[in-house]
Computed example of a mutant assay.
Amino acid sequence: MLKLLGLVIVVLIVALVVFIRTRPDRFRVERSALIHAPADVVFSMINDFHQWGRWSPYEKLDPNVTKRFEGPRSGPGAVYAWSGNNKAGEGRMTILESRPGEFVSMRLEFFKPFAATNQGTFKLVASEKGTHVTWSVEGENTLMGKAISAFLDMDALLGKNFEEGLANLDAAVQAETPKPELEARAPSLKVVPAVAH
């Protein structure tokens, strides 16, 4: 009986490993939102890691997190490293490329609770009502990532954080810039007068 039980356990473990290995090799999570501010205002809040404490949902994971900034204050080469509790973990973000009012790309390195390197991107598109921001992260699905994704919906889990972060970003930029200034800096609408017949 014990021999049969042991055999069943081995078969289940092998089946689980095989299932985990069939999970996708790469992942991508993306969310978009309208931020009610001009693209240059939104860009400055994303392109400067010193501003992330005002809107990033990950900042509240550990109020006592240790932060370290390196390189230039903003733009390519700017680095934000952190070390915190089990929820915050330990890692580093480095801005690789940025185009004012359009795009910020960064490398995301995680050291704890487990190692991973991903690509983070913010795309900004100006509109008459503000700026459409798309926040995405993608990378290789490690064996640990595949195992986690077999039991948790990572898109829903990370996506919820992105949605919260974009809502926070909207609130932060509106608090940063007085409404009359936002309206003055918003793209103007061309009004074509009616022609009398």
Score class of each variant (00 low, 15 high):
92 R>I: 06
149 S>K: 05
145 G>S: 11
124 L>E: 11
95 I>K: 01
130 G>H: 12
165 G>D: 05
94 T>H: 08
80 Y>T: 03
137 V>G: 00
128 E>F: 05
81 A>Y: 11
112 K>R: 15
146 K>I: 03
114 F>K: 03
108 L>V: 09
76 P>E: 09
77 G>V: 15
121 T>C: 05
141 N>V: 00
148 I>D: 01
158 L>S: 00
87 K>G: 01
102 E>V: 00
127 S>N: 13
108 L>W: 11
91 G>W: 05
102 E>M: 00
126 A>S: 14
166 L>M: 04
157 L>H: 13
146 K>V: 03
140 E>D: 06
107 R>L: 11
137 V>Q: 06
78 A>D: 07
94 T>I: 14
114 F>A: 06
141 N>M: 15
78 A>M: 08
124 L>T: 12
156 A>C: 08
149 S>P: 04
80 Y>F: 14
99 R>S: 09
143 L>P: 00
123 K>W: 09
112 K>I: 05
117 T>L: 04
137 V>I: 15
161 N>S: 12
160 K>G: 03
84 G>S: 11
83 S>T: 11
86 N>V: 07
145 G>R: 02
131 T>N: 08
105 S>G: 12
148 I>M: 12
103 F>H: 13
114 F>C: 04
106 M>T: 03
157 L>P: 08
111 F>R: 14
79 V>S: 07
159 G>M: 12
123 K>Q: 14
78 A>G: 12
163 E>P: 07
120 G>T: 14
98 S>T: 08
97 E>H: 08
114 F>V: 02
113 P>V: 01
161 N>M: 10
122 F>E: 04
150 A>M: 14
101 G>T: 11
164 E>S: 07
150 A>L: 15
107 R>V: 08
